[in-house]
């Protein structure tokens, strides 16, 4: 099953997500409240926030700090293409964080954030990555759990 199908869940949830997306589109950028949400993914073990932190700070795994900065003093080079991850857990609920990770295009069709749990729809996917998502369901849950701890 693809990551997207797993995330969409029932048809009702999918329509809610689409409706939320359309509402968000029609509203001024700063006034978004009804943003897409995604319930916990089916995983084989409980979320591990510590592993989530490792993924976030790994340039080859999570890639997060190529674009984002955040409270990671040990990481020397951080990006400034995207907002700081500091306080992400105060700004967004876990369900909203998870939805962003799965496919940030649900929030913003023009986003530069890669879709971390979508293996279909990309053009010219490298052979080595074909059919694979950037993170596994377990890793999505780990990162979600970790980001939720980043409170201001």
């Amino acid at each position: 099953m693809s990551g997207r199908a797993a995330h969409a869940g029932t048809g009702r949830e999918l329509w809610l997500a689409i409706a939320a997306f359309l509402v968000a589109l029609a509203m001024p950028a700063r006034a978004q409240q009804d943003v897409p949400e995604a319930g916990p993914l089916a995983v084989s073990r409980p979320p591990d926030a510590e592993n989530g932190r490792r993924i976030v700070t790994d340039r080859r795994k999570g890639l997060c700090l190529l674009c984002h900065s955040g409270p990671f003093p040990e990481v020397r080079f951080q990006g400034d293409l995207a907002p700081s991850l500091a306080g992400a857990g105060s700004r967004w609920t876990p369900a909203q964080l998870r939805a962003r990770l799965i496919d940030s295009r649900l929030f913003n069709g023009e986003t530069i954030m890669p879709p971390y749990f979508r293996a279909e729809g990309q053009s010219r996917m490298a052979v080595a990555f074909k059919g694979r998502t950037i993170l596994t369901a377990e890793e999505i849950e780990d990162v979600t759990a970790f980001l939720a701890t980043l409170r201001e």
């Binding site: 293996a119 990309q122 053009s123 490298a126």
Partner: peptide
Amino acid sequence: RFGQLDLSCAQCHSQN
């Protein structure tokens, strides 16, 4: 947009 990261040239080199 291309690849698993789903990025275009323009997104980095024109917009960022």
